[in-house]
Amino acid sequence: MHPAFSVIFLTTLIGAAQGMFMALVTGQVYSMANLLEPQDSVSFYAAGSLIALALLGGGLVAAVFHLGKPSYFFTRAWRGITQWRTSWLSRELIALPVFMLLVALYGGAHYLGWTSPFFTIKGVIPIDPSLVIGVIGVLMAIVLYVCTAMIYASLRFLQEWHSPLTVINFILFGLASGFTLTAAFSAWQGVDLVGFYGTWAVVFTILAAITRGFSMLRNSRIKHKSSMRTALGIRHNKITQRSMGFMGGSFNTREYFHGKSDATLEVVRLFFLLMVFAVPVLLLAASNALESANLPMLAFAAQYIGLVAERWYFFAEAKHPQNLYYQTVG
C-alpha cells in the first residue's frame, strides 16, 4: 500500500493523545489510592488534558486532509457517522469526537475544580466528577484504539493487517508514546512523577516491541492466498503480464504501490526499531539516573518520529492483491 501521511499522522497523534489521557487518569486513580502524591488540578491535569486535546485536534486536521477535498469535512463528513453498524471507519468517526469531548470535560472539570467527592467508597476512595469523566474517557480511549486499528485489521485480504496483532500493536504503541509524553510533561512541569510514568512507558514500549516483533515475524512468513492463478482463473504456474492496459499511470498504480526499493524499506524498519524501542528506553533510563528534565522530552520526540516511520512501514509492508493485475506497463 502507498503510505498516506494524513493517516500516519492521524493514527500516531491520536494514539499518543489517548495514551496520555489514560496516563493522566491512571495518575489520578493512584493518587486517590494514596499510592502517589496528589497533583495540582490546573497545572497538571487540566494542562495535560489540553496537550492531549491539542494532539487529538492535530490528528483531526490530518484526517481532514485524507478526505478527497478538505471542504468535504464541512459539507459531507457528517454522513460518516451513519454507517456505524457495518463500518469501523464510521465507528472511529463517532468515537474520536466523543473522546475529544470527554478529554475536554475532564480537563474542564479539573480546571473548574469539580473535584469535591460526591461520595466515598468505604470511607477511603473518594468519587468526584473528574474521576467519573476520567474513567468513562479511559473506556472511550480503548474503544477508539480498537476502532482505529480495526479499520486495518478488518480488511481480510490485506493479510499483513488482518490479525489481532494489529489491534494490540496500535494500543501498545499508543500507550507507550502517551506515557512517554506524560513523563516528559511531568518533567517539564517539575512534577515528581517522571519515574512513575517513565517506568510504565518503558514497560509498554517493551511489550510493544514484543508484539510488533511477532507481527513482523508473521508478515515475513505470510503466505498470500491470491496468486496470478486465482486472479485470472487460469491454471498455470507461469503467467506473465504483458500489458496492464495503459501506459500512463492510474489510481491503481498510485494508491497500492509504495514505489520504494526493498533496501529503503529495510532502512525504515531499522530506523523505527531503533527510534521507537531502543532510544526512548535508554533515554528514559538515563533520565531516571541523571534526574534530567530534558531527556524524557527527547525520549518522546525520538519515539514519535520513530512511530511515524513505523506507521509508514506498516502501510508499505501490506501487499494488496490488486497489485497482481498491475505488474507490467506496456
Partner: peptide, 11 residues
C-alpha cells in the same frame, strides 16, 4: 476508467 483490457502471457 471503469474498464480495462489487460494482456497476459501464459506459459
Amino acid at each position: 476508467f471503469f474498464n480495462r483490457v489487460q494482456t497476459f502471457e501464459v506459459g
